[in-house]
Computed example of a mutant assay.
Amino acid sequence: MRNVLREWQAELRQTFTGTRGAVPGWVPRLEEGDDAGYHLPGSAVWAVHGSMTTIVAGIRALLMQALHPGALAGVQDHSRFREDPLGRLAGTIRWIFTVSYGSTSAAHEASGFVLRLHESVRGDYVDAHGIARSYAANDPELLRWVHIAFTDAFLSAHKIWGRPIPGGPDAYVREWAHAGRLMGVDSPPLSEAEMREQLDSWYRAGDLRSDERVAEIVAFIRNPPLHPSLRPGYKMLFAAAVSSLEPKYRDMLGLRAPRLGPFPLPVRFGTKVTLAVVGVALGGVRPGGRMGPSEQAARRRLRRLGFAA
């Protein structure tokens, strides 16, 4: 039984970090650097990104991002998500945690690496109005869409399953705007209301689209090639992401809030339990508030530099 549990933990770590070991090799390097970074202990970003709610948020963000035809074309034409979905996930997690917990130089380096990868991501697509267009992953409009869909997802999931955010939701949107600027987003939103207004502006303008390509992506996100031992928990987390979506976006994606006949399923409670189990297995946030390894590395850097940590 103990060997089965260890194998399950190893598979879980491989899924979310890209390594079967307890801590990915890049995490200890967050201790390096000569400044405090963009975000500090007690910040809204540390509160949100140090929570296991980020797992649900990641699924929701992928679903939302698929609704923009330009962003979807870039993923389908250039991403290796079918061949190596876990590698793409691990890379995204590394960027998020580096910007959240690393020094400013580490955050710039990680963001620059992603932007350089994007330089070759170009092609053509038909927008939601039937007009043929060219796309580039570093196009300001597409970068804005990805940033806002990300911010909306992480904030929404945390508001449902997370603890109170220092400074409230506006503080998280304002602080995470640093990440948007690092990725080339001009004047990212600085409040929850501004963020939701910009998100809904794409919807009102008819710039989002649901078609067979979106359905293909949704089907893949619903049933990714995970180890069999991880699938029951993932089903709950996917249901959580779906339940957290605004009804209009859920309808566009062809999804429904989980129900058993006429009764809604207890997704909130089931998700809270699932996230607690995953947190223990990953060695991250645990009952009692133990911090994850990325935050521990960041605090060691801060103490070395003379900051209270």
Rank of each mutant, 00 (worst) to 15 (best):
G206I: 09
P266S: 11
S187G: 03
L67Y: 12
G289S: 08
L62T: 09
G21L: 07
V173K: 06
A44G: 06
L230K: 00
D186G: 09
R231C: 01
A66F: 06
E216V: 09
T98R: 03
L190E: 14
E197I: 13
R290K: 12
S294Q: 14
G91E: 08
F269H: 07
G168P: 04
L89D: 04
F263K: 12
R174I: 06
Q198Y: 06
F154Y: 15
T92H: 02
E7T: 00
T19H: 04
S105G: 12
Y249T: 03
A257W: 08
I160T: 15
A179W: 03
S134E: 15
S244D: 15
T15Q: 03
A110V: 13
W95Y: 13
R133V: 11
R80M: 04
Y203C: 04
L63C: 05
D207V: 02
H158K: 06
G102N: 09
R290Q: 14
G130W: 14
F150M: 14
G21P: 00
V114K: 09
V278W: 06
A73F: 03
Q296W: 01
R209Q: 13
F150I: 13
E216G: 13
V242N: 07
T274Q: 11
A57D: 10
T53R: 05
S210W: 10
A73M: 02
R222I: 02
T17P: 00
N138H: 11
N138S: 14
G37W: 02
V242Y: 12
A10R: 00
A136Y: 02
A215N: 08
Q9P: 00
L253W: 05
R222V: 04
R213P: 01
L62I: 10
R94T: 08
G21N: 07
R181A: 09
R29D: 14
V146K: 09
Y203D: 11
P41R: 07
E32K: 11
D207N: 12
G91N: 02
G50Y: 09
E11F: 00
A136E: 13
